[in-house]
Amino acid sequence: MSDNTDWPAVPFEPWKDSCAALHLQTQIVGKYRLAHTPWVNHSWHATLYVNADGLTTGLIPDGPGITVQFDLQRQRLMASCSTGKSDGFPLEPMSIAAFDSRFKETIATLGGSPEYDGCPNELPDVTPFTKDTAERPWDADAISRFHRALVRIDAVFNEFRTGFLGKVSPVHLFWGSFDLAVTRFSGRPAPLHPGGIPNLPDAVTREAYSHEVSSAGFWPGGGGIDEPCFYSYAYPTPGGFADQPVRPEAVRFDQNLGEFVLPYEAVRSAPDPRQALLEFLTSTFDAAAGLAGWDKDLSCALGRKGVPRPVG
């Protein structure tokens, strides 16, 4: 019998409208961070991070210094600053325009400057936040379960991250595509990316893919895959990548996306979900790095708790 107690069910269809609302809300908060933070390679300065309560921006250098958090267990948007002040509002059914307005009021109350780009990114049909006045649902139970799933996934992604000595990204949530991701880099420049992502400047895409990568992540659903899935891809894609033997058995190669995908439910229902996900992350990376001729010395054993990595 599978031990999936700590890996909650998160089927996409029942909460897809609430997911869309949360996605747009994270874009608003993420754009605020983006507007006030110096650029870091590959847009790493714009992302959100999983924590025990939900999703956080980390410290934003605006006004007195502000941190914003989606508390997805208590269903509140919270912001705090270095003066000790905090403010926020309930996360509940509302329009995107209403969320945008409440968020700006919250930031202004803390002494920040709520100024940021007012249109969504990486979506095909977009409405400016201030004009998106249709009420959106908020399925608190589904969103709470989604967060608990992110906590489990974040832990495995961070464990996988320790097995690489080269440049590797934080484990972070990109609010444009709404995926939790971790990316390894070979250290070599990549061909100029063609761009063409909807409502995203090509300059941003090309800087993000300036160097060879093997990237893995998790989507809650949408974008052509209507179920929660893990993914793994390489840029540039090496020849023969789609035909490589990878694990576990439930993995398939999606020709439209050009990526390996693994349904979340296959991991959740596995006898050992952590091990199943690590197999996916490791085998797809090995396929990409092997075909592309990455330096084998960049890979190493996974980190161990309380044990310094041996050198020499």
Score class of each variant (00 low, 15 high):
165 L>F: 07
166 G>C: 09
168 V>A: 13
168 V>Q: 02
168 V>K: 03
169 S>P: 03
169 S>E: 04
170 P>L: 10
171 V>R: 04
172 H>P: 02
173 L>F: 13
175 W>E: 13
176 G>E: 05
176 G>C: 04
177 S>I: 13
177 S>L: 09
177 S>F: 14
177 S>G: 15
177 S>P: 09
178 F>R: 07
179 D>P: 08
180 L>R: 07
181 A>Q: 05
182 V>I: 14
183 T>D: 00
183 T>H: 00
183 T>L: 00
185 F>D: 03
185 F>A: 05
186 S>W: 05
186 S>G: 09
187 G>Q: 09
187 G>W: 06
187 G>K: 08
188 R>N: 10
188 R>V: 05
189 P>G: 06
190 A>P: 01
191 P>N: 05
192 L>N: 02
193 H>L: 07
194 P>F: 03
194 P>A: 02
195 G>L: 01
196 G>V: 04
197 I>A: 08
197 I>T: 08
200 L>N: 01
204 V>R: 02
205 T>N: 00
205 T>K: 00
206 R>P: 00
207 E>W: 00
207 E>G: 01
208 A>P: 00
211 H>N: 08
211 H>S: 12
212 E>V: 09
213 V>Y: 03
214 S>L: 10
214 S>K: 07
214 S>Q: 15
214 S>C: 15
215 S>Q: 13
217 G>F: 12
221 G>E: 14
221 G>C: 14
222 G>C: 12
222 G>H: 09
227 E>M: 15
229 C>P: 03
230 F>M: 12
230 F>N: 13
230 F>C: 10
230 F>W: 11
231 Y>V: 07
231 Y>E: 07
232 S>C: 13
232 S>A: 15
232 S>V: 14
232 S>E: 12
232 S>L: 15
234 A>D: 07
235 Y>D: 03
236 P>Y: 07
